[in-house]
Computed example of a mutant assay.
Amino acid sequence: MAKQSIFGRISTLMKANINALLDSAEDPQKMLDQLVRDFSNSIAEAESAIAETIGNLRLLERDHQEDIQAAAEWGNKALAASRKADELRAVGNTVDADKFDNLAKIALQRQIGEENEARAIAPSIAAQNEVVGKLKDGLNGMKQRLEQLKSKRSELLARAKTAEAQNKVHDAIKSIDVMDPTSELGRFEDKVRRQEALAAGKEELAASSLDAQFESLEDIGQLTEVEARLAALKSGGTPQAAIDQ
């Protein structure tokens, strides 16, 4: 029953659709880890069961070989007894000849018995050989699936790490995105632009104030000229003359 349970588990695991299990799993990595554990445990149990089955098979084969050897030995004894009986009968010793013929018959009976035992064990040996062959194939298949699972798990872990790294890079790039007005760099750029605008405004204001000063100087110059011309008029001169002077 234990072997049947192990064989059934092997069959179930071998038929499992790994991709479907991963697709339906909430955490594929945990699912793969569990499958690796299940396969590893089942492989260990299967190896133990197969070793026991092989051991029983070798015992049967040894018994079968011993039966065949015993049958051959009894056959040789029967032949030797029969020849001895023939020799004794040839010289007229029928009493001892009959005794050796009886020994030959006993040996032949033992030979038949050993042959029957060997013949009876043969189907069990054939069946056990078939079982062992299937078990070995199943075990090799499980080991291959286990390697596939381990490879799949390594691939999945590598992909997960790559995705994590890509997300970190993306987040880092996003945090310094100059086109993102909500980023620190965007806010700093906006502050610099405001400062530049303020400086430009002050410069413009300073320039307009300077223009006003020059305009006031021109007004003063005009007033001075007016006074000069008035003075010239009072002295009997002409405004034009004052200008020429």
Rank of each mutant, 00 (worst) to 15 (best):
M1E: 12
M1G: 12
S11N: 12
S24G: 07
A25S: 08
E26C: 01
P28F: 04
F39T: 01
I43V: 02
E45I: 03
I50V: 10
A51C: 03
L57V: 00
L60N: 09
E61T: 04
H64V: 01
D67R: 07
A70V: 08
A71W: 01
R83D: 11
K84I: 12
A85M: 05
D86C: 05
T94I: 14
D96L: 15
D96E: 15
D96A: 15
D98W: 06
K99E: 10
I112G: 11
A120N: 14
S124C: 07
I125N: 01
Q128A: 15
E130N: 13
V131E: 13
V131C: 06
V132F: 00
K136N: 12
K136T: 11
D137P: 02
L139N: 06
K143W: 02
E147R: 12
Q148R: 12
Q148P: 04
K152W: 03
R153T: 02
S154H: 12
E155N: 12
A158G: 02
R159I: 05
A160V: 14
T162I: 13
A163N: 09
Q166L: 14
K168E: 08
K168P: 00
V169T: 14
K174M: 08
V178R: 07
M179R: 11
G186V: 06
D190L: 09
R194D: 10
R194P: 00
G201K: 12
E204T: 08
L205E: 15
A207I: 04
S208T: 08
S209T: 10
E218P: 02
D219R: 15
G221T: 03
Q222F: 13
E225Q: 10
E225W: 05
V226W: 05
V226E: 14
R229K: 15
R229V: 08
T238M: 05
T238H: 09
A241V: 02
A241H: 13
A242R: 09
I243H: 14
Q245R: 15
